[in-house]
């Protein structure tokens, strides 16, 4: 039986690497006494499949994992047991049982929504920031520098096609930038590099926190939560 779980990583969890999180989940499942399925063979590993890895330093309220169990239990009972046994860094929001043939959650994610908090050195009118965002979205190419895999060399990457929406608002002194970005097997657009393009116009501005709000799949042109498919 496969359960799909929506969970979050709180402030206590923001420094967990993907591997730390995987271990924490595996141990929580063992503690809760659920009969976790393992792959057979030389190196046994638990049958857990996560949505896209969250970078270290980010908090999130939109993470997903598919857990395969060797037993049939009602969703509510599983959820309660897991809730009781998750460590302080992880929080379970919802759980549902999915069909065994459902494609793994990792394969269906298309978009990620982020909330990035920015501290400005001096206040800038919202209209001016919105103008900067509009100009940015109007450019045909937006290049950022990335390191090539397993090498020191840098390369330029055009992230414009992967940016779907950017909006801004103030919450007290903090500027909150909301982004919808590409997140799938073709590549991810990173929230810090995107916001970097905006705030480089404002000397002294810096990102204070990045939060992943949600992950989406797309069905018939509509954004959908992985819990809804």
């Amino acid at each position: 039986m496969i359960c799909r779980v929506k969970f979050g990583e709180s402030m206590a969890g923001k420094f967990l690497s993907h591997l730390d999180m995987l271990r924490a989940w595996q141990r929580a499942i063992v503690r809760s006494g659920l009969n976790l399925a393992y792959s057979q063979g030389f190196n046994k590993h638990p049958k857990l499949s996560f949505s896209s890895a969250l970078a270290v330093g980010l908090t999130s309220s939109g993470e997903y994992v598919d857990i395969e169990l060797n037993e049939e239990l009602p969703a509510q009972e599983i959820a309660e047991r897991l809730k009781k046994h998750l460590p302080p860094a992880l929080e379970l929001y919802a759980l549902k049982i999915v069909d065994d043939k459902t494609p793994p959650v990792m394969s269906i994610i298309q978009r990620a929504e982020y909330r990035v908090s920015v501290k400005l050195a001096q206040s800038v009118p919202l209209a001016e920031i919105e103008k900067t965002i509009d100009e940015l979205l109007a450019s045909p190419r937006l290049e950022v520098e990335r390191r090539k895999k397993n090498s020191r060399e840098k390369k330029l990457v055009d992230i414009r096609p992967g940016i779907y929406q950017i909006t801004a608002e103030y919450q007290d002194e903090l500027l909150i930038i909301k982004l919808f970005l590409q997140n799938n097997s073709d590549g991810n657009v990173k929230p810090d590099e995107t916001v970097g393009l905006i705030i480089k116009n404002y000397p002294g501005a810096e990102i204070s926190q990045i939060h992943r709000q949600e992950l989406y799949t797309i069905k018939d042109g509509q954004l959908l939560s992985p819990m809804e498919v």
Binding site: A12, K14, F15, R27, P87, P88, S208
Partner: peptide, 20 residues
Amino acid sequence: VALNILPQVEKPLRYQGEEL
């Protein structure tokens, strides 16, 4: 510390606490 110090160190979890 969580906001100003830990993001700058190599392994923040060494100093965080809150383990199970």
